[in-house]
């Protein structure tokens, strides 16, 4: 056949895989862990690595929804506020009658999904730009949180949430198990369903997508709702690991989730990418944070370092080939 037939298919597949964003991100994470593990006492210990993965799980959960939104050509700046809503909301729900705590968690998750759905409604029907819509939503939620929760931290007494933060079935923290489950679901939805294909189409060319008979509005609402749901899950997990929630607890996750998505090779312009890249992307972000903490700088400098490092990494990995 053509000259492409000269190289066996699996060789081309392998070459493609080795050059793919997700794989390169995994390599970077592994390299950093090995170097840091050899040079810094305690960094490479099992406990520390497990702890980093637990932290990565929170970012990874937020990034799951964010990945869907970004591939669909949008962006969700309200994820930080939704994490906070969920972390502060569970303890505030007066459901002492339910001993297991399941009802409160389900109610909060439904609420978080609803917030995402509202974002989607604004983007799909009112045609508000996703950046404006979700930023406005974040600001609105912050206002509500300040009124409801005030400035003080709220402690929780929810058995389910506590279990999620502390339990270690088969020695693996429950948070990581949750992350694995959500990861598998996200990957399946994205790459194995017609709905996933619709997301890729929407992000690449919304006009052609709608003219091809895809319900663009429903797809848009669904991805924002999914982003609300995963941010809500992350909030519950945070609460479990922290023991208490406070206003602003979710703030770092806006930049972190977007950075994880882009570091993983997903195009910020939409239309292409995979959650398989956001997973090592999340781990990479946590690793950077850990390294900065070790350096023992003041909080101001830590923030400056974190921001510069993310920017530098994005410049290295995210050299997006120009298109259109």
């Amino acid at each position: 056949m053509s000259d492409a037939g000269a190289t066996p298919l699996f060789v081309r597949r392998a070459a493609l895989f080795l050059r793919s964003g997700p794989f390169l991100t995994v390599l970077v994470v592994a390299a950093v862990w090995i170097v840091a593990g050899l040079t810094m006492a305690g960094f490479g210990s099992y406990g520390h690595l497990r702890y980093m993965l637990e932290l990565a799980a929170v970012i990874g959960l937020v990034a799951a929804g964010q990945t869907l939104v970004v591939i669909g050509g949008g962006i969700d700046l309200s994820v930080g506020a939704i994490v906070t809503v969920s972390a502060v909301g569970v303890p505030l729900l007066p459901w002492d009658a339910d001993a297991s705590g399941v009802a409160a968690v389900l109610a909060i998750l439904a609420g978080a999904t609803g917030i995402g759905l509202l974002n989607g409604l604004g983007v799909a029907f009112l045609r508000v730009h996703p950046m404006i819509m979700t930023l406005a939503m974040a600001t609105f939620l912050q206002g509500v949180l300040i009124i409801v929760a005030g400035g003080s931290a709220v402690s929780m007494h929810n058995p389910l949430v506590a279990w999620l933060g502390e339990a270690r079935p088969w020695g693996v923290p429950a948070g990581i198990v949750l992350w694995v489950v959500v990861s598998l679901l996200t990957l399946l939805i994205l790459h194995a369903t017609p709905f996933g294909a619709r997301i890729f189409a929407l992000g690449a060319n919304p006009l052609a997508t709608s003219l091809s008979g895809v319900d663009v509005r429903v797809t848009t609402m669904a991805i924002f709702a999914a982003s609300g749901l995963t941010a809500g899950l992350a909030g519950v997990l945070m609460l479990g690991m922290n023991g208490q929630g406070y206003v602003g607890i979710g703030d770092p996750y806006v930049l972190a989730s977007i950075a994880a998505v882009v570091l993983g090779g997903t195009s910020i312009l939409g239309g292409s990418g995979t959650y398989a890249g956001s997973i090592p992307g999340s781990a990479l972000l946590v690793t950077i944070t850990a390294l900065i903490t070790v350096v023992n700088a003041s909080p101001g400098w830590r923030s400056i370092l974190f921001g510069s490092l993310i920017l530098g990494l994005l410049l290295l990995s995210g050299r997006e080939s120009r298109r259109r």
């Binding site: 060319n205 006009l207 052609a208 997508t209 292409s272």
Partner: peptide, 12 residues
């Protein structure tokens, strides 16, 4: 603009 998704594959 209206008919194709240029970055996606022919079969997609």
């Amino acid at each position: 603009r209206e008919g194709l998704h240029l970055i996606h594959t022919i079969s997609f």
